[in-house]
Design a protein around this nucleic acid. Structure first.
Lengths: 133, 133
DNA sequence: CAGAATCCTGCCTGATACTG
DNA sequence: CAGTATCAGGCAGGATTCTG
């Protein structure tokens, strides 16, 4: 692990400085993943194919506008596949593309880190507030 | 890898739904990492300790305000350690805490994914624009 | 059912000026 | 050098209404 970490430490720096803001792959990816709903939708679609209404019910506090827009962005980036069925009433299915599925593993690792250290982060926040906040 | 992926797929879903928005560790972490500058600063501090002015020069397009604020947030979350030296003129050093260093590996993995698939994402965007954008 | 269009608001962010 | 304070703009995101 120390080997992996030592390598990635340098990589983070070098990969940022080789690209301006517009073409930086890190910003391109984290900019999208960092928004409010993308990772949640990717997680749901990683589980199985969902219809639009299923996604909306699974994420009670998302607005219709944001669900539509986030799905469109993910589709645009080639992470999500959208299939329309010409039924009455119409139905639309969303699923991950192979590219989208390949993101599940790195994303899962980050989520594991988040859950593992969430308690420590919350404690640090409390300590900060009572001390100098 | 199929084992890791299969496990994380379910995890993403379950870890989201067990927490409301305020306590969800995924949103807590990605909300911070997803901002414009956090990952860049973490990458720089993963390389070595930096002074305030060094960080500012290393990130030419960050405003003083955002650098201060991002550093404060990272310090608040226990990822970054801030040390003031009572010299004239004053100097302040920033470095990663052990918690912050533990984030370098998962973050590096995500960055590797980003760089590896950045080309595919850009191609998907071009295809989307010319097709239905 | 699955969206598109519109309006509105808050916060993120940058620019500028000032301080210890 | 390392910040803080203040102001201004733009965009993310929500609520509502309308359509095929």
């Amino acid at each position: 692990m120390s080997d992996v970490q030592a390598r990635t430490v340098g990589d983070i720096r070098s990969r940022y400085e080789s690209f301006d803001a517009g073409n930086c792959p890190v910003r391109d990816v984290l900019g999208q993943l960092g928004d409010k709903w993308s990772t949640l939708i990717i997680g749901l679609l990683g589980e199985r194919t969902h219809r639009f209404g299923e996604l909306r019910r699974s994420i009670p506090d998302i607005s219709q506008r944001m669900l539509t827009q986030t799905l469109k962005d993910l589709q645009r980036d080639g992470l999500v596949d959208r299939t329309v069925f010409a039924t009455v009433p119409p139905s639309v299915e969303y699923k991950l593309t192979p590219l989208g599925r390949s993101l599940l593993s790195p994303l899962g690792i980050l989520i594991e880190w988040a859950e593992m250290h969430h308690g420590a982060i919350r404690l640090a926040r409390q300590a900060y507030e009572s001390g100098e906040g």
